[in-house]
Design a protein around this nucleic acid. Structure first.
Length: 588
DNA sequence: CGGCTTTGACCAGCGC
DNA sequence: GCGCTGGTCAAAGCCG
């Protein structure tokens, strides 16, 4: 917001706003600014300097009229107010009038520059700042004075309205963040519950135990139902909030971007949770959880309102935040293109690899927590391994949207799939439906044995050991035989890197069948509520692939991973932030 | 001059 | 406690 407020050159030029600036709030400001033709917060034109700017001096109009004897300041005023609107007052040289005139002159002069010296007659800033102070009452008719007063009042009203809307925006933003974070925490909690239920088959012991276990199961089911309802309600609530917040945003793309970029719903909250949980070792947590034999003991049964659940949610959030997505791809460039802007902040020699590991952080917004590591594979240096961590805290360009919230998606996959077997690794085929992975081999692996849960995408293997054809990816229609048969596995994590609703869709597959019946997607599609996993998968796949957002994101994801070898700096998806020093690696 | 990379120093976690 | 390792910081330098 401040960027826009402070941007002097954007007074009339809306194109000067970068994508990163266009949050809902920023966008609103931006629209307001352009709508009214001024920036109501721009202070520089409250009182313009009485000395002529160089631009003014260079202005042919100024030069032309500089022969006036009253001095340059008045000359400028005369010159700029030579039109009919101002002809009645330009001969007055009172100091108040001079100040106001200069104000007007300054604005128009800037506009003059912005518009490449278009005729000033066309300029209409919407501001008529010639107040009654600057006009002798004997030269102004009463209706004119009233009219000007009315304009001043209108301006004040507009300003007040802007401020009110700003405050409203901020309030809605905060509310939305809260709802999002709650929604997210609940979702993760639900997923972890489902996972635990699946991992720890309930042991049949004594009758007494059976009784208590039965009660526990009932309680657990109730909890799950409650949680699932909360989960769905919150999701809808969040959506409603967004609907309200974005009621003026008719662009579906903008909306999609908002939701997606929200890739990091409630990052600030996650941060605060992290701070509180800093001393909690995540692995320790996992180990403790796994050490619980069989079903959770009654006192361990989650009560969502208990502090235990809050803690658990926090742990889950911390875990999600730490989750990583690793992409292995063949690339001669030092970085793969992912649509984001990165800044290198370190480089290290990692053990067991002669190639250095580079550390990057996202610079599309100040304070964005997303980092990535780039390293060449020790075995095959043609393979580039890029590991992402964190959620973006800002809107993303289309090319980068696929990467948004990928980490949280990774965590979702980890938490929703069966937890790793003894070796800590597992083939995704175990949890991913074949319908989704028609050509899958062990190309996607999930690991929770690493310090951080990690999803690894191996894009170096394709059927027949061929490199993916970008043309197929980009031009192949989703329903064509070539799409996504060859590459859908590559995009899987980006499938879940979609907005939370699409993540939920995948979770519907990955989660237990118990999850399915509470899943929003499945709830909306009775046909998906089949007890047969295969049926569910088939129907859900159809539903998902019919989602235009999904297909768009899928294509974006694939292209962002593979990178377009023909991509040049003109690529609009590059967000126009490349610099020649970026080693030409499509890193923006 | 601002933004970026480079690179050595520093710190925390972990295993012994 | 010590050393190793991974990750980050920050000063210096580079570049457009």
């Amino acid at each position: 917001m401040d960027k826009i407020r402070g941007r002097t050159s954007s007074l009339f030029d809306t194109s000067a706003v970068s994508a990163a600036d266009v949050t809902a709030n920023n966008f609103f400001h931006h629209k307001q600014s352009s709508l009214f033709g001024i920036d109501p917060f721009r202070k520089s034109y409250h009182i313009a300097s009485s000395s002529s700017s160089s631009a003014m001096a260079d202005d042919p109009l100024v030069v032309e009229s500089s022969s006036a004897s009253d001095g340059k300041r008045l000359v400028n005023e005369m010159d700029f107010f030579a039109d009919e609107r101002c002809s009645k007052v330009h001969n007055k040289a009172s100091s108040a009038a001079a100040n106001n005139h200069n104000l007007h002159v300054k604005i128009e002069s800037e506009h003059h520059q912005d518009q490449n010296n278009e005729s000033e007659v066309d300029v209409n800033t919407g501001l008529n700042l010639l107040t009654t102070n600057s006009i002798s009452s004997d030269q102004k008719s009463v209706p004119q004075i009233l009219k000007e007063k009315q304009r001043v009042n209108q301006l004040a009203d507009i300003r007040a309205e802007l401020e009110r809307i700003n405050a409203e925006n901020q309030r809605l933003k905060v509310t939305l963040n809260q709802v999002n974070s709650s929604y997210y925490a609940l979702q993760m909690h639900l997923v972890s519950l489902m996972q635990r239920q699946r991992i720890n088959p309930r042991p049949e012991t004594t009758d007494n135990n059976q009784m208590s276990n039965k009660a526990t199961t009932e309680e657990k089911r109730n909890d799950e139902t409650i949680i699932a309802r909360q989960f769905m309600d919150l999701g809808q609530a969040a959506k409603s909030e967004k609907d309200i917040d974005q009621v003026s945003e008719s662009s579906s793309e903008g909306r999609f971007q908002e939701e997606s970029a929200g890739g990091s719903p409630g990052n600030a909250i996650v941060e605060s949770m992290d701070r509180r949980q800093q001393k909690n070792n995540i692995n320790e947590t996992i180990r403790k959880e796994d050490d619980q034999p069989g079903w959770l003991s009654p006192n361990k049964v989650p009560k969502f309102n208990s502090s235990r659940d809050v803690e658990q949610a926090q742990e889950t959030m911390a875990m999600i935040r730490k989750a990583r997505v690793s992409v292995r791809a063949r690339s001669e460039a030092s970085m793969i293109s992912d649509g984001c802007q990165w800044r290198k902040y370190g480089q290290k020699m990692a053990k067991g690899n002669p190639c250095p590991r580079a550390y990057y952080r996202c610079t599309m917004a100040t304070g964005c927590p997303v980092r990535k590591q780039v390293q060449r594979c020790a075995d095959d240096r043609a393979i580039l391994i890029t590991t992402y961590e964190g959620n973006h805290s800002h809107p993303l360009p289309p090319a980068a949207m696929a990467m948004a919230s990928t980490t949280s998606a990774a965590a979702s996959m980890l938490l929703s799939g069966s937890m790793p077997s003894a070796d800590g690794m597992m083939n995704t085929n175990a949890i991913l439906p074949k319908a989704m992975l028609p050509c899958s081999s062990s190309l996607v692996t999930l690991s929770a044995s690493a310090p951080f849960p990690t999803v690894t995408l191996d894009l170096t293997h394709t059927p027949n050991n061929q490199r993916p054809s970008l043309n197929q990816l980009v031009h192949g229609a989703p329903n064509s035989p070539n799409w996504p048969h060859h590459h859908n596995i590559s995009s899987l994590p980006h499938l879940v890197g979609q907005p939370i609703y699409n993540q939920s869709k995948l979770l519907g597959f990955l989660g237990s069948q118990g999850t399915d019946q509470h899943h929003p997607l499945l709830a909306q599609n009775p046909q998906l509520q089949s007890n047969s996993m295969a049926d569910s998968v088939s129907a859900a796949t159809a539903a998902i692939t019919a989602d235009p957002n999904f297909t768009a994101a899928l294509v974006a994801a694939i292209t962002s991973i593979i990178g377009n070898p023909h991509r040049d700096n003109n690529n609009s998806n590059n967000n126009g932030a490349t610099t020649p020093r970026n080693t030409g690696d499509n890193n923006t």
